[in-house]
């Protein structure tokens, strides 16, 4: 999987600002793509990326090398912060508050001019692997990972038992792992 050197983290911990710049250049794109996919709002997604980088700079010890890969930790942190925002926006809308952004949503189905970045092989493989997952597994994974729904919410939304939801998530993840290794061969 696309990764970043843990050495960067040690340098950031030591207050090396060039390391933060290197991390941004190498990985902010992946973090931003994830956040944008969850939030569907460029400005909010940029805010999340700023928050995550500021947090890392202020509190580098929030990560520890024993906690796994630095890159995975960063993506999970980005995902969770984006989901928090998504949920808070959803709560406001559920309470009947307006959201000018959502209410006046434009049709942005045209090609995104800023989305011209070339897919890395790794990400391209993963994207393919995800799209070839069985629909029912992909759907549950999307709701869980990109919409932040818990198992109960998904089971209610899709009229499935809790056990089915959990097993579809697990199976989907395992299949993604397997598909990736197959595609790499």
């Amino acid at each position: 999987m696309a990764t970043i050197n843990t050495d960067l983290w040690y340098r950031i911990k030591d207050g090396d600002s060039t390391a933060l710049a290197e991390l941004y250049d190498g990985f902010a794109g992946a973090m931003f793509s994830l956040s944008l996919e969850i939030l569907g709002d460029r400005w909010e997604a940029e805010e999340v990326i700023q928050d995550v980088f500021a947090y890392l700079w202020r509190k580098p010890d929030a990560f520890a090398t024993g906690k796994g890969k630095f890159s995975s930790w960063l993506l999970v942190l980005t995902r969770n912060r984006s989901i928090d925002r998504y949920r808070s926006r959803k709560r406001r809308l559920d309470r009947g508050e307006s959201d000018d952004t959502l209410q006046a949503r434009e049709d942005t189905s045209q090609t995104d001019g800023a989305q011209q970045a070339t897919l890395s092989d790794e990400r391209s493989h993963l994207r393919t692997a995800f799209t070839i997952l069985p629909t029912e597994q992909r759907q549950v994974l999307e709701l869980s990972y990109f919409k932040g729904m818990n198992h109960i919410e998904i089971s209610e939304a899709l009229n499935l038992s809790l056990g089915t939801v959990k097993s579809r998530i697990r199976l989907g993840i395992e299949k993604l792992r397997l598909s990736l290794s197959t595609l790499r061969k």
């Binding site: 999987m1 696309a2 794109g29 992946a30 793509s33 994830l34 944008l36 996919e37 890969k69 890159s71 995975s72 993506l75 999970v76 980005t78 995902r79 989305q115 970045a117 070339t118 897919l119 790794e122 990400r123 993963l126 994207r127 692997a129 995800f130 994974l141 990972y145 990109f146 993840i173 993604l176 792992r177 990736l180």
Partner: peptide, 9 residues
């Protein structure tokens, strides 16, 4: 993290 990287770039 793998799931994260499936987001369109």
């Amino acid at each position: 993290a793998r799931l994260s990287l499936t987001a369109p770039p």
